[in-house]
Simulated assay, not measured.
Amino acid sequence: MLFCCIFFQGSLPSVACTDNLSCPELKHTEPVQSGAHILELQDLLQKAGFYSGKIDGSYGPRTEEGVRHFQEQQGLDANGVVGHNTWDALALLYEQVIATKKEKEGPKGVVTIKVDLNTHQLHILDDGQVFKTYPIAIGKSKTPSPVGEYKIIHKALNWGTGFGTRWMGLNVPWGIYGIHGTNKPGSIGQAASHGCFRMFNRDVEEIYPWIPMGTRVIVTGYTPDFRGFKRPLKVKSTGQDVAILQYRLQELGFQMDYADGRYGNATELAVKLFEAYHMMQVDGEADMEMLGRLNRYFPE
């Protein structure tokens, strides 16, 4: 049986078919495996957005995690072991990376995605500075896009009907949302989706290899008024209302964590600080009295 291995040639690995002995099985072991094959593996996975650790030639837990993400996306057994089938899939991945390499070089520093719902734009930030901007479609009024701060937790090619050629899923706690391509390019620039962020296929294909797993995604824009919130919030609450609470507390200097829509210990502490500052009962719960007091800082 023949399958593909990866060998360095300049700054990108090249692919050559060889016999089984030339491509060893790679996996996380004790002691940790190391060598040129793992350097090549890490380099390729990083360029494709599946690995964000150091390229050090050691097959540690982060490399194993990157392999698992790649295997899952390819429909392989996500066991973190690079065997025959994974080497073959990596050869195809290499061809995709080479094709992307011919396009404009991507960001060099830490990548962040910022989505502005008011302008229908997605910005790629490189070390905090705007690197490139793309038009997008956002959620309709009945199915709004989530405001908050999230992370990329899933990547896939041709993920499903209607999602275009690339999918990057977010860790929004109350639904499935992502950045993806579209088979309806006329919707770009409009409020037309079920909450996801649609891009032209050519645009999402360009940014896809720049975005490693765990990339921060900041979504800003319209913020619902607290007068429309109908429930008290507390630890373990999730939802858009929690994210807006977190944003408001951030603006006032109380919330120090992400506005990720999850009411955890950091949000509870921020609410306690707000309550103490206003001489209210300090219980860490955002009841309607507390939300009403907070709302006074943000008049219509």
Rank of each mutant, 00 (worst) to 15 (best):
L93A: 01
T143C: 08
H84C: 11
L90R: 03
A99T: 05
L92F: 03
E149T: 14
V110A: 13
Q121F: 01
L93Q: 01
V147K: 09
A137E: 10
I98F: 03
L93W: 03
G128T: 04
H120V: 02
N118T: 11
A91G: 15
S141L: 02
I138F: 03
E95C: 08
D126R: 05
Y150T: 12
L76V: 12
V115H: 01
N118L: 08
Q121Y: 02
L125Q: 05
I152P: 09
D88G: 00
A137R: 09
H154K: 12
K101T: 13
T112F: 06
D77G: 14
V81W: 05
G109R: 04
N79F: 08
G128S: 10
I98H: 02
G139V: 11
L117R: 09
Y94H: 13
P144H: 07
K132Y: 09
G106P: 01
K102H: 10
Y94T: 01
D126K: 09
I98G: 00
G83K: 03
V115T: 01
L93R: 00
I113H: 00
T143E: 15
Y94F: 08
E149M: 14
Y150A: 09
T133Y: 13
K151M: 13
Q129F: 07
Q129K: 15
Q121T: 14
E149K: 12
I113N: 03
A91L: 01
N79P: 04
Q96I: 04
L90S: 01
A99P: 00
L76T: 10
T133E: 15
Y94G: 03
N79R: 13
K142M: 15
Q96K: 12
H84A: 15
D88Q: 09
V82S: 11
H154V: 13
A78C: 12
T133G: 10
Y134N: 11
K101V: 07
N118M: 03
N79S: 13
V81G: 09
T100S: 12
Q121V: 08
S141D: 15
T119W: 03
P135Q: 14
L122G: 02
G83C: 04
D126S: 12
K102N: 10
S141F: 08
V115S: 00
N118G: 06
K132A: 15
H154L: 15
I124D: 07
D116W: 00
T112S: 06
T112D: 03
Y150H: 11
L90Q: 00
Q96H: 04
K114V: 11
T86C: 05
H120E: 04
A91Q: 06
G148P: 07
L90W: 02
G106V: 06
P107C: 08
G128L: 06
L117C: 02
P144W: 06
A137Q: 10
Q121A: 08
A89G: 05
I98M: 02
T133P: 05
I124H: 04
T100Y: 00
K132V: 07
E103K: 05
V147S: 09
K132P: 03
G139F: 08
Q121N: 10
V130Q: 13
L92I: 02
G148K: 10
A137V: 06
A89I: 01
I124F: 07
G106Y: 04
E103G: 08
F131M: 06
V115M: 08
Q129E: 15
E149I: 11
K102T: 07
